[in-house]
């Protein structure tokens, strides 16, 4: 009885052991020398096989880097860290000296409450599929369809569907890989520099009236943000009926635009910015009062001026203009997630 249970164990175990020894021997004997830099590069990559680099997995990307077929800064999840490490391994200089960390933003605020629907869509819960049915159920032909194809596409679980039917980006998890950007059939998601914090949450090219009838928070193309008083450095330009932001310029214009926009289409991810205060050095020249875009400074000529805290948006224009250096900014940045 004992041998009838023991024997199969021994035989099968023995065979397995024999094969494993054989395989181990073969793997040593027939080991293929590969470029040692390949495994070094694999170690410094993010190692999540997300495919954002355009190669099927981290290994394929590392092989392409070793062969010199691709630029070394392809790993977006790894970011600047990975790129500089690869540069060290490959002994080349990083091509882009300054790596700008990007983050995805959803450029639509028209959720269930704000934007109308043309009909009830009951098909496959997928934006691409919904787009095929008469161009989507959303009344706005540019707005977010809210079926979460971008959420599915996100490899890092940085996207989730909010209560109002719009995707929400978790900035801490977002690596700026851009998978969601290509997944969105309406091209609503954009990558902006992480430091920028402000974006225009609408991509509609329609005229003001058309936008107003379908959505209460869409950009009506009024061009207030584009006016030289608001945007002197040309950060904001008009492209058709929609302002575009040149993040490379990144002046204080954006912050002013947030407060000038009548439809509140500009979104500032920072909910609380430090405000200015004017100290006793002020001689009441009135320059700050003139330059303030939101009329947040009051005071008679020749008297010490005063900042109205409730009106101040913390753009800092007056700080740079004050000839006496009497204005300073006090307080800390308050982020949306800390609210």
């Amino acid at each position: 009885m004992q041998s009838s249970t023991l024997l199969p164990l021994i035989i099968l175990g023995g065979l397995g052991l024999l094969f494993s020894v054989g395989l181990a021997y073969a793997s040593k004997k027939f080991a293929v020398q590969e470029n040692p830099r390949l495994s070094q590069i694999l170690d410094v990559l993010a190692g999540v096989n997300c495919g954002a680099c355009g190669y099927p997995g981290c290994r394929a990307f590392a092989e392409a880097v070793v062969k010199g077929e691709t630029a070394i800064d392809g790993c977006t999840p790894g970011g600047a860290e990975s790129t500089s490490q690869i540069a060290r391994i490959m002994r080349t200089e990083t091509e882009s000296a300054e790596y700008i960390s990007m983050v995805a933003v959803v450029r639509c605020r028209g959720g269930r409450k704000e934007a109308g629907e043309l009909f009830r869509y009951q098909g496959l819960q997928d934006c691409d599929a919904a787009q095929l049915v008469a161009g989507g159920s959303k009344a706005c032909p540019y707005g977010c369809l809210g079926l979460g194809t971008c959420v599915q596409a996100c490899f890092f679980e940085a996207l989730s569907m909010g209560d109002n039917g719009l995707p929400v980006v978790d900035d801490k998890r977002c690596t700026g890989c851009g998978l969601c950007v290509s997944a969105c059939p309406r091209k609503i998601i954009q990558l902006i520099p992480r430091s920028a914090q402000i974006y225009l949450a609408c991509v509609s090219q329609d005229k003001g009236k058309a936008v107003k009838t379908v959505c209460s928070v869409g950009c009506i193309g009024c061009g207030l943000c584009f006016k030289p008083k608001v945007s002197p450095s040309g950060t904001i330009t008009m492209d058709g009926n929609l302002p575009t932001i040149d993040y490379a310029k990144n002046g204080t214009d954006l912050l002013v635009a947030v407060h000038k926009c009548p439809t509140h289409t500009f979104v500032d991810k920072i909910v609380h910015r430090p405000k200015v205060s004017i100290d006793s050095k002020c001689d009441g020249c009135g320059i700050c009062k003139e330059v303030c875009p939101v009329n947040a400074i009051e005071g008679e000529k020749g008297q010490r001026h005063k900042a109205i805290i409730d009106k101040c948006i913390g753009c800092g224009i007056c700080v740079t203009k004050c000839p006496l250096g009497a204005i300073s900014i006090v307080g800390a940045l308050g982020y949306m997630e800390e609210r």
Binding site: L12, L15, F19, A26
Partner: peptide
Amino acid sequence: PFHLEYLQIVTFILIIASLVQLVETVLRKT
């Protein structure tokens, strides 16, 4: 010889899996 014919499926899968792995290793080198 050991009257273990009933183990044939398990044994064959073991053999095939090891064999494929071996062939892959050898082919990669040679």
